[in-house]
Design a protein around this nucleic acid. Structure first.
Length: 155
DNA sequence: GCCAACGTTGGC
DNA sequence: GCCAACGTTGGC
């Protein structure tokens, strides 16, 4: 089953917000490549929850995709930050997903740690100039991140 | 606040 | 189709 990574500004929705809420709508994706990934996700797939544009950028936990993709209502809301004047109810190019909380890591895996991990060098997140907010994560990359999240206990 | 890098827009 | 200008992302 494919895995994913999605970025969120924690001031808007953090992993701890999601933990408290249980479920939330993942909306506001306004890039076609990212949107295509959003649409290709299957119910039940897991993703890393990345905190961006904040004091401690990094992977903060894990969440799960629920149900199917549906038109992003924020594109039609004039009061939303994500309003798109070119979108209409009949023709809304943007998609949203419902997601549910799975796990919050005890500590955020900092971007610097991700960049320093050789197994993650191909992950778009750590590549120079890439701003993609939704991306696939290979099985090997997923395991590499989990290893950073849960280092072997001291003995 | 700065700025590198990218995506989008729009004139031609 | 080209490409300059502009807006956005997002780390630092």
């Amino acid at each position: 089953m494919p895995h994913w990574l999605m970025k969120s500004e924690p001031a808007e929705l953090s992993i701890h917000d999601l933990q408290r809420l249980g479920r939330a709508r993942w909306d506001g994706v306004r890039n076609y490549q990212a949107r295509n990934f959003v649409r290709s996700m299957q119910a039940g797939e897991l993703f890393f929850f990345y905190h961006s544009s904040c004091p401690e950028p990094g992977i903060a936990g894990i969440a799960r995709i629920l149900g199917e993709a549906y038109p992003d209502p924020t594109a039609l809301d004039p009061h939303s930050h994500y309003f798109d004047a070119r979108a209409s109810a009949a023709n809304n190019p943007w998609s949203a997903r419902d997601v549910e909380f799975v796990e919050a890591f005890p500590a955020v895996i900092r971007l610097a740690s991700l960049k320093a991990c050789p197994a993650l060098s191909e992950l778009p997140l750590v590549q120079k100039g890439t701003r993609l907010s939704v991306m696939p994560v290979s099985a090997a990359q997923w395991q590499a991140v989990l290893a950073l999240a849960a280092p072997a206990p001291q003995r």
